[in-house]
Design a protein around this nucleic acid. Structure first.
Lengths: 272, 272
DNA sequence: CGCCTATTTGACGCAAGTCAAGGGAGGTGG
DNA sequence: CCACCTCCCTTGACTTGCGTCAAATAGGCG
């Protein structure tokens, strides 16, 4: 039986920097910014706020006048059916801006909850609009960020519609570890996984019981080690195969690919 | 048994207008444009091209240098699993710009196929970028259009993940008829439905056989009449209820709501 | 130690998939 | 004008992946 190390990867994360610096960083993984563009972003007014786990930050039906960037933690976009079934449509990590859409859609069609305790940086829409007007390339880069989210959603639709549970879970874990690494929350061995199996199920369109069985089967095959805190990849190539995972839809930039290390995000590294 | 009328709604559609006029119309359902903004859009170079049904317009992995607007017909965003299972992620109708995302994401993560014969208007990215730079409000409106698509995807994820087949089909049909009406392809009675049951299945994450059974069950309940060409709603309220359909996620503008007629898009109108 | 939350296991049922065959409608060509 | 083909829809029989229910176990944490 694989033994997970008690230390969380979180401990090794970079210290907080301001929300606007995060946005600069995010954009610069795509294209370098000019001095004046950078200055404009760094001048954005940001209100930092901490949240505990399981809090609804904004609610479906709200008409926000600000958007927020995730500085620390994981948030989830939640939707409910009329019958009250909950589904987590997509997770967001450090440097994502989960409700950027509210900049142009005045009514929220989802709720956003904290999945872990979070630090969020709120920026008024007016300020973002102003920067976008003055610096079209910034607008384009923020637009791009929402387009990548949409691409993730498309893959998610495919996965839920057509991939059986084992493949779906494996695919989800592949995506999760890659995106966590980009958020500075993973390394060559794996990543933080601050999700209960119930939350996994809510994001996968499966029942909690079935997720449990699938996870166990992936463990038995020696592909992964996983608990409520962290996730270790024992055989990346095989996990990718089982999960039918091709990261093309993530639209990684060359810089991001470097971050992940030579195209093979995680090397085989059996635990003890 | 309900008898569908042989005449298709298509016959009544507005005649072609130029692709750029379509874009102006689309944007103006959200907010009026200034004279100079309108002029800039109308000056965009558009190459019209006709396609037969079932043609792949752009392919996953392509690096397009232009985007296209749908002037006539229906297109589908298609994804495949590694095993070759096909899924239609979202349909697009007149006035939509299915691959607008390629403006900022250089590699396509989906293919786009014609579901019916189509007239498409191709516009070089360079020209769109220029307009977006010169007129930030145009950029914002195009951005908004991609955000509405993303909202539709989110609802789609919820539907496939959590709604049982009957509800899912009903929900799909509700969305379809509303969006077709906005594209000028439906009226108080119903809309064109140029989809085989296999294509419905591909869009719903169900098998063709099961779609057939569900459609029959909706027919027997007296909610709909439907064949390969058209779709008639016999009981809109009940269909909405069965489909757990709340159009909030479509982010309809007041003008669009008017188009649909007083909030209740389709009135009860039993066939002969 | 006891409570709460998360994971695990087993038994059972059903919604939806698969396979296979038949029927209808429209198109085409001899 | 009939024969044949193709595409789509329909139906039935059978299978199965996953959900549901329920109870037991395990792991923090005050």
């Amino acid at each position: 039986m694989v033994i997970l190390m008690p230390r969380k990867l979180s401990g090794r994360a970079a210290p907080h920097s301001s929300a606007s610096q995060h946005i600069v960083d995010k954009i610069e993984t795509v294209a370098p910014l000019s001095r004046s563009e950078k200055t404009a972003i760094l001048a954005l007014p940001v209100a930092l706020k901490d949240f505990r786990r399981g809090v609804t930050v904004v609610r479906e039906g709200d008409h926000p006048t600000q958007s927020f960037a995730v500085l620390e933690g994981v948030t989830g976009m939640i939707k409910f059916t009329g019958a009250g079934d909950r589904h987590i449509v997509i997770f967001h990590f450090a440097r994502d801006i989960p409700d950027l859409q509210s900049l142009h859609l005045d009514r929220l069609d989802v709720s956003i909850e904290t999945i872990t305790s979070c630090t969020l940086g709120f920026i008024p829409h007016a300020a973002i609009r102003e920067v976008c007007t003055d610096f079209p390339r910034i607008a384009a880069m923020l637009w791009r960020a929402t387009l990548v989210d949409a691409a993730v959603l498309r893959e998610c639709v495919l996965s839920i519609a057509r991939r059986p549970a084992l493949m779906r879970v494996a695919h989800f874990l592949c995506e999760f570890v890659v995106r966590m690494k980009l958020a500075g929350r993973g390394d060559a061995a794996g990543c933080d996984l601050p999700l209960t199996q119930t939350e996994l199920a809510d994001g996968l369109g499966l029942s909690q019981v079935h997720v449990n069985r699938i996870v166990q089967s992936l463990r038995k095959r020696g592909l992964i080690a996983l608990n409520r805190d962290q996730f270790i990849v024992n055989d990346w190539n095989e996990l990718k195969t089982v999960g039918d995972f091709d990261p093309g839809y993530l639209h990684l930039t060359p810089r991001q690919r470097n971050l992940l290390g030579d195209g093979a995000p995680l090397q085989y590294r059996p635990l003890k």
